[in-house]
């Protein structure tokens, strides 16, 4: 368990998250991709804190902020999905194509 391997693992998590967020059509699955990216970010922050920052608590704080970002992303995301669904009965990105026409 070195800093390098930890960063590669977190890069893999971010990569899978990018793939999910770009490829999925359903709103909720897109949010899962975003969460996976944040998961990788948190892992990298804790890895830096534990192995490169001599234990100053800043890296841990970054992780706490990332957790708050996850919560905000989910709350606002679901609120928007609910609002869009009420107005249009739509739960997939490709159905919201008004701006394309």
């Amino acid at each position: 368990m070195t800093l390098q391997t930890l960063l590669v693992v977190s890069a893999a998590l971010v990569g899978v998250g990018v793939y999910g967020a770009l490829s999925q059509q359903s709103f909720v699955m897109i949010m899962m991709g975003l969460e996976l990216m944040l998961n990788g970010v948190m892992l990298a922050a804790v890895a830096f804190w534990a192995l490169a920052a001599a234990g100053t608590p800043k890296g841990q704080l970054l992780t706490i902020v990332a957790m708050a970002v996850m919560a905000v992303e989910m709350v606002i995301g679901f609120a928007v999905v609910v609002a869009v669904y009420r107005a249009r009965q739509v739960d997939m990105t490709d159905m919201l194509d008004e701006l394309k026409r």
Partner: peptide, 15 residues
Amino acid sequence: VAGFAAFLGLSAVGV
């Protein structure tokens, strides 16, 4: 491709 590129780029930075 985007996901793989993100993985490669970030792990290159890490390594």
